[in-house]
Every structure is written in structure tokens, then in C-alpha cells.
């Protein structure tokens, strides 16, 4: 390294130092520690005792809670395509030169700025089986009333319904993506006689696929971390139907004080997240289109 190289590297490191220090203290150390704890019997009050893979095998054998929480979480992936369709649809409606569009944009984004605890409290009330607004709508539409959060069959769809209300972030991202699609592509498609659906299928979707890809990955990660809503609204019930992965992990750590098991669960979560992301990533070669070839 020449002296000027060295000087530049030192300057660069000084600028990134706040993040780098934080990375070492709040990421590298905890990663190593949690991996070690995951191999230990660790109940907080007594020091960790090494037991090898015991926590992992115990988890994988635990069909009542662990596997239940995995399956419950897997069910929530239904939400990803629904959220995609809803937010892309709204983004396309918003991507027009119409008066008052900023007003509509604000309305759709608004639910996303509500504190999760408050929206959880609100939705418990909306979904109330006897006096809730939603069952009243069902009655008006001559549909059967549902038990929502109190019914093991409908508890997970309740959460999906509530989450679809907060798709604002996705809408804004898709809207920005749509605004980046060059107008001349649509003009060319129209000259070739493409109808509205064909324009959507062959221009909009391919041009937007990197954004969809990004959102899908964030959605996968977010689904595995689903916590506050269940903690506030159902705490896993009824009949463990909303015992989601992150909730069970939290209970292990802070209610049962089984730190070893909780750390093992965190690492399994990491592996599951990476696996799911890898699947999305792997499949992306087939459907994600990058302008100007691979990036």
C-alpha cells in the first residue's frame, strides 16, 4: 500500500467507524454468542453449560409447539401474493395524471404509520365477533358471521386481513417503480397493437420485476419475524393457532427463560430465512428482468 492509499483507507475507516463499531458490538459479538448459547443449556440464572446439538434436536422433535409455530408461520406466506396484487393494483391506479392523486396516496399510506400496538388494539375491536364492524358488514352482505380471532380456523386470516390494510409501504415502492418505466415502451407496444392486459403482462411486469423481487424478499423476512400483532392480540391462541415462530421464540427466551432453546430457534430462523430467500433468489433468474443485462 502506498502512503496515500493508506491515508485514504484510514479516512474511509474513520467515516464508517460508527457503523463498524456497532457492527462488532451489536452484530458480530451477539452472533457468535448466540451460536454458542444455542449449543448450551442456559437458563439465565446459572451459567451456560455446553450440551452440543441438544437444543436443536429437542426443537425438531417438538411437534406440539415448534413445528406448530413453523406451520402457522408458513400459512402466513399466503399473504405475500395477496399483498403484491393489492399494492400493485392500487399503485397502478395511483400512477395516473389525475387531480387529487396526492390525497389518495396519503390515504393509502396512512395505516402504515399507525403504531402496531394501536392498530392491534383497533383490529381486535373491528374483528370483535359480537359487536365488531366487520361481522356487521358480513351480516349486511347476507354472509355468515365469523369468530375471527376467537376461532382457530379464522385467526390467521384475521391477521392477514389486518396486514393487508398496512400495505402502504409496498404501494409507494411500486408507484416509484411504475414511474420509472419509460413511456416509449408503452407507445411501442401500442403500435404493435397490444391491448391493456398485454401491455401490463409484457411491459409493466417485466420492468417492475426487480422491485417485486425486492419486496418479496423483504416480505419473506418480515413474515418470519411476525411478532407484535400476535403478542398483543392473541398471544398465540386460540388453540395455538397463532403461535407464530417469533412469538414462540420470545416466549422461550423471556417467559420460560430457556435461552439455549431460544438461541437455537433464532439460528433455525436464520437458516429458514436464508433458505426461503435463496429460493426466491434462485427463481428470480426466470422472472426478474434487469434492463441492460445482468447486474
Amino acid at each position: 500500500m502506498t502512503p496515500s492509499d493508506r491515508r485514504r483507507t484510514i479516512t474511509g475507516l474513520l467515516f464508517v467507524a460508527p457503523w463498524l463499531l456497532g457492527f462488532l458490538i451489536f452484530t458480530v459479538y451477539p452472533i457468535l454468542a448466540s451460536f454458542y448459547f444455542s449449543l448450551c443449556d442456559y437458563r439465565v440464572l446459572s451459567p451456560p453449560r455446553f450440551i452440543g446439538l441438544g437444543n436443536y434436536t429437542a426443537m425438531l422433535r417438538d411437534t406440539d409447539y415448534f413445528w406448530r409455530s413453523v406451520l402457522n408461520t408458513a400459512f402466513m406466506f399466503i399473504e405475500l401474493p395477496l399483498a403484491l396484487a393489492l399494492s400493485l393494483g392500487i399503485a397502478m391506479l395511483l400512477n395516473q395524471r389525475l387531480k387529487g392523486i396526492a390525497f389518495f396516496r396519503a390515504i393509502y399510506y396512512l395505516p402504515a404509520v399507525i403504531p402496531t400496538v394501536a392498530s392491534a388494539v383497533l383490529w381486535r375491536w373491528l374483528l370483535n365477533p359480537e359487536y365488531g364492524l366487520i361481522n356487521d358488514f358480513l351480516t349486511k352482505l347476507h354472509l355468515p358471521r365469523l369468530g375471527w380471532l376467537t376461532d382457530p380456523v379464522w385467526s390467521k386470516p384475521s391477521f392477514i386481513l389486518m396486514d393487508l390494510w398496512t400495505v402502504g409501504g409496498g404501494i409507494v415502492i411500486y408507484l416509484a417503480g411504475l414511474q420509472g418505466v419509460p413511456q416509449h415502451l408503452y407507445e411501442a407496444a401500442q403500435m404493435d397493437g397490444a391491448n391493456v392486459w398485454q401491455q401490463f403482462r409484457h411491459v409493466t411486469l417485466p420492468m417492475l420485476s426487480p422491485v417485486i423481487f425486492f419486496n418479496l424478499i423483504m416480505g419473506v423476512i418480515g413474515t418470519f419475524q411476525y411478532f407484535t400483532q400476535t403478542f398483543v392480540m392473541t398471544n398465540g391462541g386460540p388453540d395455538n393457532s397463532t403461535l407464530f415462530y417469533a412469538l414462540y421464540l420470545f416466549q422461550n427466551a423471556f417467559q420460560f427463560f430457556r435461552m439455549g432453546e431460544a438461541c437455537a430457534m433464532a439460528w433455525i430462523l436464520f437458516a429458514l430465512t436464508m433458505g426461503a430467500t435463496w429460493l426466491v433468489f434462485k427463481s428470480s433468474a426466470r422472472w426478474v428482468y434487469y434492463e441492460g443485462g445482468l447486474k
Partner: peptide, 15 residues
């Protein structure tokens, strides 16, 4: 690190 679930670092950080 954006991909790292916060739960992995949560417990040691708490401790």
C-alpha cells in the same frame, strides 16, 4: 446484515 433476523442478535444483546 439486513438479512439477519433480529432474533439472532436479540438475546446476547439483551444479556
Amino acid at each position: 446484515t439486513l438479512m439477519l433476523p433480529s432474533q439472532v442478535t436479540l438475546l446476547p444483546t439483551f444479556l
